[in-house]
Design a protein around this nucleic acid. Structure first.
Length: 154
DNA sequence: GCCAACGTTGGC
DNA sequence: GCCAACGTTGGC
């Protein structure tokens, strides 16, 4: 069992948008970075814990808890000409972009980025590292436990 | 394989 | 809107 932080722009899919979906589950469409794709393709397993993070918005931070809810499968938006995520170079027989489904298990208070940065226990979190831009980053078991037990107990 | 130019991310 | 950081592209 592994843990992840996954960024979503609330303008596209907020925690409430995800909760409004059937089974509170959303396909994690639109990832167009190979490192992030490889996490979904190679390292995730159903049941892995996910910190659902709001980015590119007035209040960036953790907005809820979720879990990986499917095996990897091709992201349909890469083949959709009307989608901003369309990738004409991707071959339908060998899709370039994969995704997993993510099921929200709990809406939490918004834990702001600044609050995450304020805790030495989280100083090594990949998402907090200088210059990090990855939309999917691994979270250690200790970081996960700290977020749950300390930050979300408040 | 190198690397300059360019594009994107995302907080502020 | 700015800009640091870093990924991607494409000529060579």
């Amino acid at each position: 069992m592994r843990y992840w932080l996954m960024k979503s722009e609330p303008g596209e899919c907020s925690i409430d948008d995800a909760l409004a979906m059937p089974a509170s589950t959303v396909p994690w469409t639109g990832v167009r970075n190979y490192q992030a794709r490889n996490f979904m393709r190679d390292a995730m397993a159903v049941g892995d814990g996910v910190l659902f993070y709001h980015s590119s918005c007035p209040q960036p931070g953790i907005a809820g808890l979720a879990e990986v809810a499917s095996a990897p499968y091709p992201d349909p938006t890469q083949f959709d000409p009307s989608s901003p995520y369309c990738d004409a170079a991707s071959d339908a027989r060998e899709p370039r972009w994969l995704l997993v489904d993510v099921r929200v298990t709990r809406r939490t208070r918004l834990v702001p980025l600044a609050e995450l940065r304020a805790h030495p226990e989280l100083a090594q979190m990949v998402v907090l590292r200088r210059g990090n831009r990855l939309s999917i980053t691994p979270v250690t078991a200790a970081e996960w436990a700290f977020v749950i037990k300390v930050l979300l107990a408040r």
